[in-house]
């Protein structure tokens, strides 16, 4: 969602930090690292996207944040959820889920087959892939 092609923060009064509930609390936030050379907590984000709403430079905060996350350790619970998704296709594992669903009159669900999920998550870019940028 790049709007500002250079993605350069010009250190406006940093209204993204005012909009962010994590930054406002004084905790390390990913925005602190994006707006200045400060320690970051790339996973310390509640995904409310108020920062994107208020950024006067139309910076693609989402993409920058996701790139930064790949360089930093995941919090333990994030790691567990990611592991669940990677293994089962669902972030939460509930034993006997379909029996519980039946009690509520809900149809049973089948989670995606492991092989299919593996293909989706591990697929390499095709060698002939175009690299035209938007």
């Amino acid at each position: 969602m790049v709007k500002n092609s250079k993605n350069e923060c010009d250190q406006c009064p940093q209204i993204c930090l005012e909009a962010c509930m994590v930054a406002r609390s004084g905790k390390p936030s990913v925005l602190a690292g994006l707006t200045a050379d400060a320690p970051t907590g790339a996973w310390h984000c509640v995904n409310c996207w108020k920062c994107i709403e208020v950024c006067p430079r139309d910076i693609d905060i989402y993409s920058l944040m996701m790139a930064r996350r790949r360089l930093e350790d995941m919090p333990e619970l994030v790691e567990k959820s990611v592991d669940n998704i990677s293994r089962t296709g669902c972030s939460i594992i509930v034993r006997g889920l379909n029996q519980i669903r039946e009690m509520y009159g809900l149809k049973p669900v089948r989670l995606i087959e492991e092989q299919k999920k593996k293909i989706l998550l591990e697929n390499e870019s095709p060698p002939s892939g175009k690299t035209e940028k938007v």
Partner: peptide, 27 residues
């Protein structure tokens, strides 16, 4: 319409792990 199989959309987490998160929701 019932989905034949359920797959996580990638949640808020997978985009921080791999670009292939998009394939999960595209599925």
């Amino acid at each position: 319409i019932e989905l034949p199989e359920f797959c996580c959309c990638g949640a808020s987490l997978m985009p921080g792990v791999t670009d292939n998160w998009i394939n999960l929701s595209a599925h």
